[in-house]
Design a protein around this nucleic acid. Structure first.
Lengths: 201, 201
DNA sequence: GTCTATATGTGGATAGAC
DNA sequence: GTCTATCCACATATAGAC
C-alpha cells in the first residue's frame, strides 16, 4: 500500500542520478570525442564504480540512446524566433538559431546527425523525439508557404552541409556558417521560382 | 652491387602485399563500420598472424592513413566528364560523377570527409592528396566561370549535404541525391546572380 | 618476413557478495 | 545499489624461433 509514494521519491532520486550521469557523459564526449567515451572514465569522474552505471543504463548503447533523446529534446525546447511575414527574414532567423544550437555542441550534433558509432542505432522512442524536433523546426516555414518534402529535404541538406563542413574542416570558425544568409537568400529565391512554375502540381 | 634489382622485386612484392591488406581492410570496414575494424579480424581474413601486419603498417592509424590516401586517389583517378560550355550541364555532370563515387562506398566517404576516429588525423602527405583531389573536382567549374572561394564553399556544402543526408538517413536510397539536378540549377542561378551584382569586386 | 608466445593497458560486460 | 572480482576482446608491442 505504501509502494506508490515510496516509488515516487525513489524514482525522483533515480532520475536525478541519471541526469547527472548524462551531464558528465556529455562533458567527457566533448573532451575525448563521442567514440572516445569510456564507462570507466565516466564512473571515475562520477566517483562510482564502473559496474554501478549498469543500474541506470543497461548498456553503453542505452546511454548513447539517452544522450540522443536529450540532445533532440534541447532542440525541441529551443524557442522559435518571432514570426515574420517575410520569407527571407523568417528563414534567416530560424536557420541562425539552428546553426547556433548545432555549433554550441558539435559532438552532440555528430551524435544526432551521423551514424558514426558502430553498434548504435537510436531506439524507436528516441527517433520519435527526433521527428518531433524536425517538425518543430520546419513549422515556421510551413506556416508561411506551401512546401513539398523535396523542398524541405533541400533545405536540410543545404543547412546541414554548411554545419558539417564547418565542424569537420574549421571547428570554431565561421568560413561556412558565415554563408548562411547567402544560402537562405538562394533558397528563398528557389522556393519562389518553384511556386510560380508548378502552382498546380 | 645486387641490391638495386633485388630491392626492386622485393619492393614489388611488398607493395602487392600492402595493396591486398588495404583491399581486405576496406571490405571489413564496409562490413563492420570504420571504427569496428580490428587488426585481428584483418589478419585472420588474410590468413596471417596479427603481429605480421606490423611489417607493413607501423600502426593501426598508419593503416587508416593509407586507406585515406588511397580513397582520395580513386577520386583523383576519376575521369572528368566531357567539358560542356553550358554551366548547368557541366555542373550536373561533375556532381553526378562525384555523388556516384561517394555513394559507391559510404564508409570510404566517412573516412575521407569526417573526423570520426578518435586518434586518427591524416598525415600531411595524405592531406596533400586530398587537396589535389579537391582541385581536380573544381577544375571544370573554374575553367568555365570566375568563382570565389565562397562560391566553392557553398557548392561543397550543398553537394556534401545531400550526400550526408542520404547516407545517414536513407542508405541505399535516392531521396536526397535525387535532388542533385535541382540543387545544381539552384547553384547555377546563384553564380549568375553573383556575377551580375558584384562584377567589379 | 613470418610465426608463436607473451606482456601491458584499455574497453564493455557479468556474477556474486554486501 | 554498490562494490570487488572476473571474463573476454582488443590494440599495441616485444622477444625469439624458423
Amino acid at each position: 500500500m505504501l509502494d506508490k509514494p515510496t516509488g515516487d521519491w525513489r524514482a525522483e532520486r533515480r532520475e536525478a542520478a541519471r541526469a547527472e550521469i548524462l551531464r558528465v557523459a556529455g562533458q567527457l564526449a566533448r573532451e575525448h570525442g563521442l567514440a572516445g567515451l569510456s564507462l570507466r572514465d565516466l564512473a571515475r569522474r562520477l566517483g562510482m564504480a564502473a559496474p554501478s552505471l549498469y543500474s541506470y543504463f543497461e548498456s553503453k548503447n542505452a546511454l548513447y540512446d539517452a544522450m540522443f533523446t536529450e540532445g533532440w529534446q534541447t532542440l525541441l525546447d529551443l524557442p522559435q524566433p518571432d514570426p515574420d511575414p517575410d520569407l527571407r527574414t523568417s528563414l534567416r532567423r530560424s536557420t541562425h538559431a539552428y546553426v547556433r544550437w548545432a555549433l554550441e555542441d558539435p559532438v552532440r550534433y555528430q551524435l544526432l546527425n551521423q551514424r558514426t558509432i558502430p553498434g548504435f542505432e537510436p531506439s524507436p522512442e528516441a527517433y520519435a523525439v527526433a521527428q518531433r524536433a524536425y517538425e518543430h523546426m520546419m513549422a515556421p516555414l510551413r506556416a508561411l508557404v506551401d512546401v513539398t518534402q523535396e523542398d524541405l529535404d533541400l533545405l536540410t541538406a543545404l543547412v546541414g552541409g554548411l554545419i558539417n563542413q564547418q565542424i569537420a574542416n574549421e571547428p570554431g570558425g565561421t568560413r561556412w556558417v558565415g554563408l548562411v544568409d547567402d544560402a537562405m537568400d538562394l533558397y528563398a529565391q528557389w522556393l519562389r521560382a518553384r511556386a510560380t512554375t508548378t502552382p498546380a502540381a
